[in-house]
Design a protein around this nucleic acid. Structure first.
Length: 477
DNA sequence: TGGGGTTAT
DNA sequence: ATAACCC
């Protein structure tokens, strides 16, 4: 009966090792087994087909949110504008040749009747984004967010349950990657049961997408595969509002369809540049490149990760999302060159951040200010300073005390700002970011009021308020 | 390009 | 504090 069942919760294969990403949050990697063969070290990468992963990619997310807010926009070409670019647009606009991250000028030229909606305030998008992730979590406990509009679901357990209940599907729900091409080569059976798992997974994905459509009025694309990398890559095969399933034997085909190593999630701008200097530009280049050449440039861990990615191997787990670790607000502009200007922008951002904090319920223990300075050469240069926020700032935090808290935080933020910018010299800023981090678990208001209603002298020494006193509160963490 | 996020060093 | 990475 259960002979086909596998223990998916335990790492499979031998010599399982959790690789540490060299940098960034998303460089997946696979398990490897090293074997001495003569004098050379052969590396065998183990592909793991035991999981079923779904990647959910909301169609032109910001545009969908705005069309829900104002249904009249549905039939019109719609662009979501941030500063002078269209960050995304609906499909009516795409049929007119508009693309993501297009300059407003170019977009208006292509499509004079384009309707523009400002998307600089992310409040509605953020709210809908969490609505969607929480909705998905009701179906599948293991949901990982990637940005505001993408989610990974590990539905391995759900699939196993269905198969145990006797479900036997013969055809996929939605598209099958590579279907319609010649050489089906034995129908893709791999002998480990992954075919049945992925087919059942495609039906679960279909049901989840259907529910998302009827209950939240949101359409999306989905990719179903045996790991995160492939589920994400295959999700975009048919757009919009469609889903695609990849069987392991078509992996090479999917990877061959990519133009550049840059198309692999996890290989970003910097790695692409460094690979190019090694003469590696295509995924095929990376697959066949000499491992020692890559290792010399990136080190052994990243080399293995990249080699694995180039072959569609990715054993990184889906990590359940939680409350965000950062609450930030930023604004970019052509020029900010006076302290009062900066002060006003920072005050504005603190305002909106505090309402978000109020909703969140947690209290931050660190404040960070980041600035982008104008530079002749178009460099990526941001500088930041952070400081501790005394816990007293947020004791008894409520909508009534917001103005008080803001004024204190403005002082902290200005202190940080002055550490980055020498305001005695002329300066030219193009961006300011204010962030709260180090968010503590929901602070129990009862505990706070318990202490604040006692006579001051009955407080334990450590709980006594330390009012802002010179620089003591402005010390770096 | 913008207004967010994450993790690693 | 910065530098990667993701959207």
């Amino acid at each position: 009966m259960d002979s086909d069942e596998e223990d998916w919760s335990q790492p499979l294969g031998v010599n399982t090792r959790k690789d540490v990403s060299p940098v960034g949050g998303y460089i997946p990697s696979g398990d490897t087994t090293r074997r001495k063969v003569g004098t050379s070290l052969q590396i065998h990468r183990a592909d793991n087909h035991s999981r079923v992963i779904v990647h959910i990619d909301i169609d032109c997310f910001y545009a969908q949110v705005e069309m829900l807010r104002n249904p009249e926009l549905r039939t019109k070409p719609l662009g979501i504008q941030q500063k002078y670019i269209i960050v995304t647009c609906n499909y009516v606009a795409r049929e007119r040749g508009l693309t993501k991250l297009m300059l407003v000028r170019d977009a208006k030229e292509k499509c004079p009747d384009l309707v523009l909606v400002s998307g600089e305030d992310l409040t509605h998008y953020r709210n809908m984004s969490y609505k969607i992730s929480n909705f998905l979590q009701k179906y599948c406990p293991l949901v990982e967010r990637l940005g505001f509009d993408e989610n990974f679901l590990d539905i391995t357990q759900l699939v196993a349950d269905r198969i145990r209940q006797g479900e036997e599907e013969m055809t996929v729900c939605g598209h099958l990657y590579g279907d319609g091409e010649q050489e089906h080569s034995s129908g893709g059976q791999c002998g480990c049961g992954c075919f049945q798992r992925l087919v059942v997974g495609s039906h679960l994905a279909g049901e989840i997408r259907e529910a998302l459509q009827t209950e939240l009025k949101i359409t999306c694309c989905a990719g179903v595969a045996h790991n995160k990398l492939l589920s994400k890559l295959v999700a975009g095969t048919y757009k919009p509002n469609q889903q695609t399933t990849l069987l392991p034997h078509m992996t090479a085909r999917l990877l061959a369809s990519l133009n550049s190593v840059r198309s692999i999630p996890g290989i970003g701008h910097s790695s692409t540049k460094r690979l190019r200097e090694l003469g590696i530009t295509t995924v095929s280049d990376l697959q066949t490149a000499d491992s020692s050449i890559i290792e010399a440039e990136f080190g052994p861990v990243t080399m293995e990760t990249m080699k694995n990615l180039s072959q569609g191997i990715d054993n990184t787990p889906v990590v359940a999302f939680g409350a965000p670790q950062t609450l930030s607000d930023e604004d970019s502009f052509r020029k900010c060159s006076t302290v009062s200007e900066a002060r006003a922008k920072i005050a504005q951002m603190l305002q909106s951040l505090l309402s978000r904090l109020l909703e969140d319920g947690r209290t931050p223990h660190t404040l960070r200010v980041t600035v982008r300075k104008m530079s002749e050469v178009n460099r990526y240069n941001r500088e930041s300073r952070q400081c501790h926020i005394p816990a007293s700032y947020f004791t008894g935090f409520s909508s009534e005390t917001v103005p008080l808290v803001i004024s204190k935080l403005e002082c902290l933020a200005e202190g940080l700002f002055l550490k980055i910018v020498d305001v005695k010299q002329p300066f030219h800023l193009t961006l300011i970011n204010v962030a709260f981090t180090n968010l503590s678990a929901k602070t129990n208001t009862d505990i706070a009021s318990f202490f604040s209603h006692r006579p001051a002298d009955s407080k334990p020494d450590m709980m006594k308020e330390r009012l802002p006193n010179g620089l003591s509160d402005n010390d770096v963490d």
